[in-house]
Design a protein around this nucleic acid. Structure first.
Lengths: 348, 348
DNA sequence: CCATCCAGTTTGATCGTTCAAATCATCGCG
DNA sequence: CGCGATGATTTGAACGATCAAACTGGATGG
């Protein structure tokens, strides 16, 4: 084996110029078909790959996207981010981009790290996740000129100056609530988190509006007895469900699968196993919900990732000024698991 | 704001040459202290960052490491890889390297993708995870000249020509077994996976040897009744534990926390809740084991990641030929959760 | 018959750094 | 006083691609 081939070495062995080969790769339509084929054959035969560094130095684009990953706090919530990360890598790869990871212990550290990578040219832009109230990152990135797209809407001002993609949690809990209404339930509780988290409040609002629209349990809604607020967790779910039962609830929509798991074990004590399963709807459609046969709201994570990548790459390739920011709210899907036991066994 | 500063622009505004500034950053000791300080001050003031592309083009190193990520099959096993990934990013960052992700649907695709990135110079080397029997990746990477370090030993030939870091599963199950022996158990079962997986067989062997060394239940070991083999999963764990109970087992060492969760629910039926917890030891110390108060073998994932990064970077920075391959087996740690209920309540 | 155009191809300059060798100043010492 | 050694700094030449402009040669048309 000789040296690693370069544009120059290929060119002289083919009797054409560097630029022609470069054009075959980047502007195929300007090269004559016959030479194009000849060049392509030689490229394949020699195993030539353009140097990322040289290309990036000249074109001022690295085709790399930055992303901060966070330590998984628990196995449950982690799996969602994991699916998102995976989809993100896949979509980027499909579009000839790569994903670079960073860690940070604070939002400020994250943005400064991203900005540093951006000025060295290591990344062209980045993806923001886990947006929250009073999130300063969009402003900081904008100030340093780092292109980005957020997964998660900006909870303070909906019409932010940047593009974002999010999943419509309220639509999800509405679907869940309407499903339980269809099953005949009227006193449907919501097990959610304390107010103050954008995601949690959003999910609660879907249940609230669906209940109001259906005109059921109006007095209970007013008293707030069906509206249980607690930290996330299985144990917390059981406790919240016990309180809801005392308030006369027969079913529950939950802000997470952890809460739903807890809720269904409580319901099992006062009703058939079948009812205990079908009267609870979780959120995120985690493996745990699938294993226990619980219905759950599934977030279209892969679609979200794909959209994020599309928007970011569009932003990166748009010649000069950034395009109009796009705000995209994807609708989740209700995964029903309501077979009775016999059907369940047939299915296996 | 003017243009982005470069070595040249900084040099002329300081009245020194490019190379001096370059030396301040890469070879501080050759520059006179006074000029060094002057340059450093200006660097900080201007916010100068060297161009990654230019640097990489000339020095032929990108300081980027490739890693394939896999879709999380279940939430349980995923959390371990997640912790490893996170530690990997952190360690790389500390050593001025970055982590680039790829996906692949097969081992061949993984190696060819890594090789492609390596020839473009996008990565300097890569990390291999989830090594298995008949793993062709080490040979393929070696053939294409991609430097790499594996997390997971090569199960076919222990003295492979490449460096690897792994966690001594047998030592972990030995610790677990000896702990149960200390508690007075004699008929200790092992709930593990079918033979043929390197990891599973390794974990089984630690239990086997510890039992043999203690000279207990010799006849049961011979019959294999205490050696339960099943697929991973909570349900599978309950079934295996039931069989083990029939064989007279009073305790169990498990190859995973999923199996342990199943086993402890079964034990609960025939003994006190306290005994059910303390007589089962899981593996991986997942959040689930922590939540249920199960003892478990904790893998030093962060230490492993740190070692992997160290070895890989050493391999990358060693001038010419690769250094002697290093094989590193880290010892896991037994996390005991054996408080009785009263203590447990005090602790809260 | 010459000017014009156009598809196809080539040429020179450039991106911003590091490498390798050259230069310059200072100093010790025979 | 001159000469080599030593330390600090500078200079020229890559690294390998893309950009922008210039060059071909044949077809078109007035």
């Amino acid at each position: 084996m000789g040296e690693k081939p370069t544009l120059q070495s290929l060119a002289s062995s083919l009797g054409v110029s560097r630029q022609t080969i470069s054009n075959v790769l980047n502007n195929p339509q300007v090269v004559h078909a016959s030479t194009r084929d000849r060049v392509l054959a030689e490229i394949r035969a020699s195993g030539y790959r353009p140097s990322a560094a040289a290309r990036s130095l000249r074109s001022r684009r690295s085709e790399v996207i930055g992303l901060r990953i966070r330590p998984a706090v628990d196995g449950i919530n982690g799996s969602l981010m994991d699916a998102f990360l995976h989809a993100l890598v896949e979509c980027s790869q499909r579009r000839d981009h790569r994903l670079l990871l960073i860690t940070a212990t604070s939002d400020e550290q994250e943005t400064s790290e991203q900005a540093a990578l951006h000025t060295t040219g290591a990344i062209d832009g980045c993806v923001l996740t886990d947006t929250h109230l009073d999130d300063t990152r969009p402003a900081e990135l904008a100030a340093t000129g780092v292109p980005f797209v957020a997964f998660g809407r900006p909870w303070q001002d909906r019409d932010a100056g940047h593009s974002w993609v999010d999943i419509d949690g309220a639509a999800g809990t509405r679907l869940a609530t309407e499903h339980l209404l269809d099953l005949g339930h009227r006193r449907i509780a919501f097990l959610g988190w304390p107010t103050g988290s954008g995601v949690g409040d959003d999910r609660r609002s879907g249940w609230q509006r669906a209940m109001a629209d259906a005109g059921v349990a109006a007095e209970d809604l007013a008293t707030g007895l069906l509206d249980q607020r607690t930290d996330d967790g299985v144990v917390e779910g059981t406790q919240a469900m016990e309180r809801a039962l005392r308030a006369g609830a027969t079913a529950a929509v939950c802000a997470s699968d952890s809460l739903a798991v807890g809720a269904s074990t409580v319901l099992r004590r006062v009703s058939s196993a079948e009812t205990a399963r079908t009267a609870v709807v979780g959120f995120d459609d985690t493996p745990v919900a699938a294993a226990l046969g619980l219905s759950s709201v599934r977030q279209p994570v892969a679609a979200a990732a794909s959209r994020v990548v599309d928007l970011l790459i569009e932003r990166l390739t748009t010649a000069n000024d950034p395009p109009e920011p796009v705000h995209d709210l994807l609708t989740p899907e209700l995964v029903l698991r309501e077979f009775d036991r016999r059907l369940d066994q047939h299915a296996r």
